[in-house]
Every structure is written in C-alpha cells, then in structure tokens.
Design a protein around this nucleic acid. Structure first.
Lengths: 337, 337
DNA sequence: TTGTACGCGTTATCAA
DNA sequence: TTGATAACGCGTACAA
C-alpha cells in the first residue's frame, strides 16, 4: 500500500532530479524547464497520483493557503450562508477556511486567535468585530491581512464587507410610514456592534426625514431571540407605538414571541420588522417583513478581497457595501384607525 | 517586531539545547528532564510568548491534530449544530475541524477528499455517507479513522453516530394513530441514504404494529423543500390520507407549502410531521410536530469516538444510537370526522 | 535547462 | 538528564 507519494518518487519515475519535478509542477517555475521534461514529469506525477504535501510546502514558504474565519456562532442562521460564500470562493484558488466560533467571548476569542496563528493561517476573515476589538487590533498591528464581514471596525483601517444598513433601514422606515405609521419604536442592537449603531442611526435620521421622532428606543444586549422578547416586553409596558423596527431578524423573532405571550396580534396590534432575511423568515407566523442582505455574496466578496491581498495584487484597504432589498411580508400592515 | 519565536530562541534564553526545550514543553517527555531545567524552560517560553509551530510539528510527526469534516451543505440548518458539537469537543483536546461542503456531488466529494488528504488530516467525520460511497470506501481501505454522523454506511465496518430513527418514527406513528388517523401516507427520503431507508422501514413496520398499511409512499430525490412540495403535490393528486409523515423537516416544510398553495389547511385537512426538529420548526405556521434529535450531542459524540481512535485508546468500531424525543405541535390533530 | 545543497521548526534517536 | 544530529517534504539560490 503506497502510503505517500513524494517528489522523490515522481523524480525517480521521470528520471530527473526532485528539484526539476518541483519546478515542472509549479505554475510559477514551469517555464524554467524543458517542455519535454515537463511533460514526462507531469505524466509520472499523474501515474503515481502525486499530491504535494501542503505541510512541507508551508514549512518552506511560510504560507498555508488557509484563511482563519472567526464567527460568533455557527448555529446562528445568519452565518452559514456567508461562510459558504467564503469557502467556495477560497476553494477556487486552492485556499481553505479554518472556522472557529467565539460566542462573543473575549477569552474564547483569544484562544481561537492563538490556535489559528499557531496554524500559520495567511489571513483572517472576521465576523466577530466589536468595539475595543483586541484581536483585530493585534492583527492590524502585525500587518496580517484581515477583512471584516457584516460588521465594521470603527476607526481602524481594515477592509470590510457590509450590507447597506442605511439604505435597508430607510426602506423599512419608508415602508412603515407609507402604511400610515407615525408612532414607531425600535429594538436596537448592541451599542458595541457596528450594525447595532448604524441601524439605530439610520432609524433616527430616516424618521426625521419624515418629520417624525422615534418613540421608544430599547437596547438589546445581544442579537438574540431572548433579548428580542425581553425588549419587546419592556416596550409593551408603556407604549402607544404601532410599529417596532427590530435591529435584526433574531430580535424580531423574539419580539413576535413576546407579542404572542401577551395575547397581542401582529400585524393587527403592532407591526414588526427584522433585518437580514435569514432562512425561514418567510415561514414565520406572520411571515416577517425584513431587509434581505446578500449573505452568500458577502462571503464571496470578503474572500475575494482577502485573496487580492494575499496574492499581492493590492495592498489598499477596500470597503464593499453591498446592496440590500426590502422584503415586504405580512408582519407589517396599516395601523388600526 | 518579533516575527516568530522558535525553539531556538527559548533554548538560547534558558541556556539549554533546543531538544531539551522540546522535551520540557511536551507532556509526554516532561519527565525526561530535570525539574529545575524544565521550570527555567517554561519561564523562558512564557517570557518570549513561545507557541509551537504546528506545521513543523506535523512535518515531523505526521499528525496534524485536525479532523476533516465533510457535510452536504452548511446552509442546511440540520448541520451547523452538529458541526458546533464536533468543533467544541475537538477543541478541548487541541484539535481543529476542517470543514467542507460536498453538495451531494460525487466530483466535489473527490475534490474535497484530495484537498483534505493533502492537508494531512488525521481522521474524518462524514455527514455525507451514501450508497456506493467511494470516499468512505477509500478511507476504510487505507485504514484512515472515520466516523459517520447522522447517516450510516450500509455494510462497511465504520464507526457511526445516529439518532434513533426507528424509535422516532414509531413515536410519530403512535402519535398519529392515537389521534385517530388510519390512512397515513409518507414522503420518504432518498433510497440512497440510510436515513431515508431506515425511516421508511420504521414507518411501515410501525403501521403494521397497529394493523395498518401505508397509504401512498412517495420518494423524494433529495431532502429538500422543493422535493417536499413536489411529493406532496404528487400525493394530493390522488389520496384519501389524513396524515403525511415526511422523511425529515425539510420535506415537511415543502409539504406545508404545497398544501398552502392548494388552499388546504394543516392540520384541519391533513396532518404533517417532520424529523430532526431543526431550528425555527417551532415557529412555522402551523408549528411542526416532529422528532427532536440531539444535534449538538451527535457532533460531540462523533468527535469523541474519533479522538478515541486517534489517541489510540481503542481501535474497535463503535455505533452510538442517540435517543430522540417526540415533539408534539400543531401540525398534527385528529382527522375530521 | 538541470542538478546540488540547504533550511524551514520540530521531534526522535543515539550518544555522552 | 542533556546534547548532537538527522529527518519529515518541499522550494529556491546557486552552480554547473
């Protein structure tokens, strides 16, 4: 049983020196070798089923063709499509993603960072960006290529891929105002996350454009169903709002739960909107009005930007803001007269 | 800027030979070195922030502390929790998961396998098992440790972690019969997958135990919403069934869509059940009666079994069948009189 | 155009 | 108990 075919084996079969095999098999150096010899080498390699050992290559070159991908939690339905986009784009260039969950926990984040650095990943794609992001700061400090996805790093000069939060929230506000709502509250995402802040800002300025002011603003501590429920409960304690803009779908789902528990009906008693259009948001009861972000594309774009840097085609930081789409469903309706 | 701290650096600072540092820092060999020297070495390592280079270690030892995880599609909500369980369990022992999607495509599967082997993964966790599984066969042939999750390999002597399909389907059948249903059809999963076959078999024998025979059996070509819709349409063309047992949640979701399109109501006109209890199945309209499988635990267990083999504690194949729970929701009700 | 020689950082073996 | 040395498989400067 042939355990491992190495350069030597191929060299022996092709009757050349291992170094020649190495050259013949690499795109960069192919032209340094006689076409005939190269053909013989390639034949030998295929006959033996030779596959270069990436570990050895890495030790020699310092590159792993691997990107470290840090996400808060893979079981959050927002992330898998993005990861999928990343992986597929990386794979096209022979790159691989190393994925790890941080659960928004600083200590876990440090552990993950160390593990990935020990594995010599070439660059990072972060979906975990937050205020005071030590991980991000240290990567920037050491000039390791990074791209943030979904969230942005305030201040830092780091490439990013985000959805157009501003346009999305404005579309939601326009939609609600168009339905006749004038008393609109929001369940804002965490102030430590760029998405939370950006969407809240867009919400406020969006309303003002219509000559309106936000009703209540309640801050969620995390983008979770539980927080969505808690915040909706808090709102319901004292509100005359006819619509609630939630910071994302997860918060909206929790908000819908809270309404149900109180015996209130959506959209009859109160309209609710989300953000992201995660899978199954069209099958909720009621189906959720939300903003679709191009999840897979965001991943692809992030991988593309990272590869651009890794393959040294560019060194400038890039900021891609991808377009979003308002998705109108049955969780929003005209307020009762 | 210190780019990389190596054994040499630590050795120099501690005033010993690099080999001694290596010994002092490894659990296996610590006892070979003088306690005092070891302490000096550890101090030096910490002072310099030394982190062993896993690439170099791999080249030397042949082991990567990495498991290749193959899944059909990360965006299928069934898989992320399992992957999460795998990753967390592996991480406890310093192992990492390398994740790749195959989309149930044989060619993609081969590509992924090659890529993972080139990266010297120590073992595999497969959620992609199917009939005539060339990937699985080749791994077994080369005696590479493998564990299959969710699905099983027919015949092959391979460790596996599955949910108790049999008990789950029987619970569903008992539940429906208990509600008064006697005309029950099924949308069976693909015959090429062990889950599809096992659940269909359990469905038939389960009904027989009640002295009943299946009404129609329609086979889905894939576990997808689209196939669920198609199969439900096919059923509705000619059936007097009052309940439909779908092969999994995805098929059930598609089936519910098809009902809605036809203007039929669930459970009033027809009851529907799923399998897996994926996220959000409790928020569908109507909430889905299904069988909960311990998704995270399945991942954890698979990783545990793989680690057992990799750390050479055992070589025997293990088959873990994890318990399931019937989750009764509003997609099932007594048939109309 | 091809061969020689070396080193990437680690661990295993052997000698001291 | 510690040190010296070789080797894992590859890529590359240099020599031929």
């Amino acid at each position: 049983m042939q355990l491992k075919v190495t350069l030597r084996d191929v060299a022996a079969r092709a009757g050349v020196h291992p170094a020649t095999v190495s050259r013949a098999l690499s795109d960069q150096t192919r032209r340094q070798v006689n076409a005939d010899t190269a053909r013989r080498v390639v034949e030998a390699a295929e006959a033996l089923g030779y596959e270069p050992d990436l570990t050895a290559r890495t030790l020699r070159t310092g590159r792993t063709a691997t990107a470290g991908v840090m996400i808060p939690d893979l079981t959050n339905p927002l992330f898998p499509p993005i990861v999928r986009g990343i992986e597929d784009c990386l794979a096209e260039r022979g790159f691989t993603a190393l994925i790890a969950n941080t659960d928004n926990d600083a200590q876990r984040e440090r552990r993950v960072l160390r593990a990935m650095r020990a594995r010599n990943v070439d660059g990072f794609i972060l979906m975990t960006t937050h205020r005071k992001d030590e991980t991000l700061a240290s990567l920037v400090r050491e000039e390791i290529p990074v791209v943030t996805v979904n969230r942005m790093a305030p201040g830092a000069d780091v490439s990013s891929v985000t959805a157009d939060d501003d346009a999305g929230v404005n579309a939601l506000v326009d939609h609600l105002v168009g339905l006749g709502h004038s008393r609109i509250s929001t369940i804002a995402g965490p102030r430590t996350l760029s998405t939370g802040r950006a969407r809240l800002r867009a919400f406020t300025t969006g309303l003002r454009r219509h000559g309106l002011e936000p009703r209540q603003v309640v801050y969620a501590r995390t983008f979770s169903e539980a927080e969505g429920s808690r915040c909706m409960d808090e709102l319901l304690a004292d509100t005359d709002a006819t619509a609630v803009v939630a910071g994302n779908d997860m918060l909206a789902v929790g908000a819908l739960d809270a309404l149900r528990v109180r015996g209130l009906r959506c959209p009859d008693d109160i309209s609710v909107t989300g953000f992201n259009d995660m899978r199954f948001m069209d099958k909720l009861n009621p189906p959720l009005t939300t903003v679709r972000i191009p999840q897979v594309d965001m991943g692809t774009e992030a991988a593309r930007i990272l590869l651009d840097r890794l393959l040294a085609r560019t060194t400038a930081t890039q900021h891609a803001v991808l377009p979003v789409t308002l998705i109108t469903r049955e969780s929003t309706a005209a307020p009762r007269a």
